[in-house]
Design a protein around this nucleic acid. Structure first.
Length: 810
RNA sequence: GCCGGGGUGGUGAAAUGGCAGACACGAGAGACUUAAAAUCUCUUACCCGUAAGGGUGUGUGGGUUCGAGUCCCACCCUCGGCACCA
């Protein structure tokens, strides 16, 4: 009987006593392997099966790579700043420093039960000053490079969290964290200019990432190629409106121009008669939340300004409108409307009875040119595809693609147009009006203005004695006088600190650089160690970070590269996402009360069984719905494996050739399963091995081989068996077995015989049997004869796939 | 609407274009036991048939091929992501 509890305790203790997983970072002998999981937030809750589902296979991968001969570094830490601890403090009065310390300790204890090979000596906690002073350092580096700036802008505001949010943290117009409706607010905030890295962030060369994730980032960055076009404002010589369009080929079809309500020209151009309507419209647009304003299919609204713009390509006057379907944050905040060829313009034009002119027809449409400038064109919808230009002056007859080039080039001569690439990606808003984060290391001086702290003045420590409850949209720090009052580092005069703290995504945007130098006092990371250990070889975490953490981390890493601190641009070479474990089809969450705890299973069956059961559920990247129904299967397997290995005798039915083949077949299957992150098939392979070994036996030598094979998946049991089989060193210092292809070949194989595509029988042939021989034997089969010899049939074709099948076509 | 992933037994699932359902769970039958648990053995896609055997089957409809879960076309459902970005 295998005693999992006793065995697992024993080995966890021994591993930690021996420091088996303390990676020697300066080792020159073995190639390095940086195996990283996204570090957890230390909530007070216990680990649930989702955590295990993520961490256990990730650890098995690390163990596998270690046995493959790599010097594996598998660090862990806590992403400990952020709202939950602060909200908890508001509710209970317990200081975040206290609750986070408790939670980290609790979490460490639970993580250790999994039996991972985390190198705890390199643990980092982002809310420790020894970490966050370097987060502040990162901020200063960006500031120095002009990549951190302060700007008054309409931002996302969560009224319940009382803080601003980055675009990435707003989902469906709701706060990612508390789900309340996000509103707009004009505030002066700190931004990181991630936009200037848009082009580089689109390049994924050399990255082994899921296609899906790369696509999501691409879409988020949203690159589009188009042109800017200048429309002169009629009667205001020299005043121009710049619009952005990807369809400059439809310029002749422009029947009006639309400005975003926030557009700076609005006040200037609006005619007296229209001022009241315009002012009212802008007011109502301001009140709209982003979600309402940006919902597609929403009824389009707008007002006329009374002003007119001149189409530079044909001198035609078109009215200027204001509508909130045009966004100030994209392009130039102004568009040329071509209702005949754009769905949004079409809907708007129809509502306000604006003219439509068809200027592009589908390439294969040979019909007569439609009448131009005809309000009554009875059209059901806009034609938005590329085609051939009509009613477009000199450009008539050109393809859309060519026309885009020609029109832009010609207008460019007079400075009226230019090619322009735009991105949907907006700058990263990093300030938060909350307490529990890294203070932004900036000072505002009455004489010098905005002054960055020098590196020697870091860390800016978070004051301890603070009223956490947010007040009036200001950070709690703003009310701590001792914190706020400071002397200006430049002139020595009275100054004030920045009271906002940083988005926690800033903390996690560089932590992978810190790990190898976790205890370092004189810098955020060591250039030497970073260049040696990074990029991260394997990064494992949830797909929900695709457009947040994973994008921010790439950006910050690129900035550090550009500043000359590190040699590599990309932080994560290979990325794998674990699938989601649901309960009754729903995501596990405390509020739904459907969180499954692993505790009962781990204490009944042990970590090894539970780890393997999670892996046996299906492919790692697929996830699945939780059910405990099958765990007994894995428990039985572990018992059988243990008994097989503990039995020192070779089985009575021992057959050397079959036994060897069994072992090598297993090595192949298990290795392929682990490599593909389909641990379920690896475990199935081991189960098959045991079933077969019960029949054909297994030698002492092969027992050791198979024990090494299972070690990454069931680390505790493997160590125990390894020791039992007489080995003194840890099994994780042993190498991973590889298979001999020659050992896989069987003497004979059973192949299928098909007649007209249907399997009608089988025949046992010698391996590698010739075609003639195979066909002859197949034809002789009783079950086949009757088909071949039926009256009126003859063989039209014979197919032989060696070791697979014979197929007759009659 | 657009972009991805996925639809295979009662369940979790497996399958370089080559005998669909490996490996498990569950269920049924049997062995051991005074009995139960545990363990072991056998059966288990569906339909017809006592059997031998035959037929049907991987979301739907077509196609390519000697042969399709796998490739191609059209569609349905589902889960994620994006969504007035001009």
């Amino acid at each position: 009987m295998y005693d999992a509890q006793q065995v697992e305790k024993k080995w966890q203790k021994r591993w930690s006593e021996k420091g088996l997983y303390t990676t020697s970072l300066h080792d020159q002998k073995r190639p390095k392997y940086y195996n990283l999981v996204m570090f957890p937030y230390p909530s007070g809750d216990k680990l649930h099966v989702g955590h295990w589902y993520n961490y256990a296979p990730a650890d098995s991968w690390g163990r596998y790579m270690r046995m493959k001969g790599f010097n594996v570094f598998e660090p862990i830490g806590f992403d400990s700043f952020g709202l939950p601890a602060e909200n908890y403090a508001i509710k209970t009065g317990i200081h975040p420093t206290v609750s986070i310390a408790q939670n980290c300790a609790k979490m460490e204890e639970q993580l250790s039960l999994i039996g991972t090979m985390y190198d705890w000596s390199k643990k980092i906690v982002t809310s420790d000053p020894e970490y966050y002073q370097w987060t502040q350092w990162v901020f200063l580096q960006l500031y120095k490079k002009g990549l951190a700036y302060r700007k008054r802008a309409p931002v996302n505001w969560c009224p319940s969290c009382q803080t601003v949010l980055a675009n990435e943290q707003v989902n469906d117009g709701k706060c990612d964290r508390c789900k309340s409706e996000v509103t707009k607010k004009e505030l002066t905030q700190w931004f990181f200019n991630i936009r200037s890295y848009a082009e580089r962030l689109l390049n994924f060369e050399g990255l082994d990432w899921p296609e899906k994730t790369k696509l999501m980032q691409q879409h988020w960055i949203g690159r589009s190629e188009g042109s800017t076009v200048q429309f002169e404002i009629f009667g205001r010589s020299g005043k121009k409106i710049e619009v952005y369009t990807t369809r400059v080929d439809t310029l002749f079809g422009c029947t009006y121009v639309v400005l975003a309500p926030e557009h700076p020209l609005v006040g200037e151009i609006t005619e007296k008669l229209f001022e009241k309507d315009v002012a009212e419209y802008i007011e109502s647009a301001k009140r709209e939340t982003d979600i309402n304003r940006s919902a597609e299919g929403r009824d389009k609204t707008g007002v006329e300004t009374g002003a007119y713009a001149v189409n530079p390509v044909n001198g035609k006057r078109v009215p200027i409108w204001i509508a909130d379907y045009v966004l100030m944050t994209y392009g130039t905040g102004a568009v040329m409307a071509v209702p005949a060829h754009d769905e949004r313009d079409f809907a708007f034009a129809k509502k306000y009875d604006l003219p439509m002119i068809t200027v592009v027809k589908p390439p294969r449409d040979n019909s007569v040119e439609p009448p131009s400038d005809d309000r009554s064109i009875a059209k059901g919808e806009a034609f938005t595809g590329d085609g051939v230009l009509v009613s477009s002056g000199d450009y008539t007859g050109l393809s859309s693609e060519l026309a885009r080039k020609k029109i832009t080039e010609l207008l460019h001569i007079d400075g009226l147009a230019d090619f322009k690439v735009n991105y949907k990606l907006r700058d990263w808003l990093v300030s938060r009006q909350r307490y529990w984060g890294a203070p932004i290391p900036m000072i505002y001086c009455q004489t010098c203005g905005e002054v960055p702290l020098s590196e020697e003045q870091l860390p800016v420590l978070l004051p301890e004695d603070v009223e956490f409850r947010p007040k009036g949209g200001k950070s709690p720090l703003a009310f701590v006088d001792e914190f706020m009052a400071v002397k200006c580092p430049t002139c020595g005069g009275d100054a004030q600190r920045e009271s906002d703290t940083m988005d926690t995504f800033v903390d996690s945007s560089w932590y992978f650089l810190r790990y190898p130098a976790a205890r370092m006092k004189d810098g955020p990371f060591s250039t030497e160690l970073a260049n040696k250990w990074l990029p991260v070889d394997m990064y494992i975490g949830g797909p929900e970070h695709a457009c947040m953490h994973l994008l921010y981390a790439r950006f910050i890493n690129m900035v550090m590269h550009d500043l000359g601190y590190i040699d590599f641009e990309e932080p994560f070479k290979r990325l794998v996402h674990q699938g989601l474990v649901t309960k009754d089809g729903a995501k596990m969450s405390k509020s739904k009360g459907n969180v499954v705890s692993p505790d009962a299973f781990v204490s009944q069956y042990g970590s090894d069984v539970f780890r393997m059961y999670l892996m046996f559920m299906g492919p790692f990247e697929a996830g699945g719905d939780w059910s405990d129904l099958g765990i007994t299967g894995v428990a039985r397997f572990v018992e059988r494996f243990w008994n097989l290995m503990a039995d020192r005798e070779v089985n009575p039915g021992f057959n050397e050739a079959s036994s060897k083949r069994n072992v090598h077949k297993t090595i192949k299957k298990v290795t392929e399963g682990i490599e593909a992150f389909t641990f379920n098939t690896a475990i199935a392979g081991l189960m098959e091995f045991v079933n077969e070994a019960m029949k054909v036996g297994v030698t002492m030598e092969d027992k050791k081989m198979v024990t090494r094979l299972i070690a990454p998946l069931a680390p505790h049991m493997a160590e125990e068996i390894w020791e039992y089989l007489g080995e003194k060193e840890s099994i994780f210092n042993a190498s991973y077995p590889s298979f001999d292809p020659a050992m896989l070949i069987e003497d004979s194989v059973e192949i299928a015989i098909q007649v007209n595509g249907k399997v009608r029988g089988t025949v046992v042939l010698a391996t590698g049997c010739t075609k003639d021989e195979a066909l002859r034997l197949a034809r002789e089969q009783e079950s086949i004869k009757k088909y071949l010899e039926a009256p009126g049939v003859s063989i039209k074709k014979e197919i032989y796939v060696p070791n697979k099948l014979v197929s007759f076509v009659l």
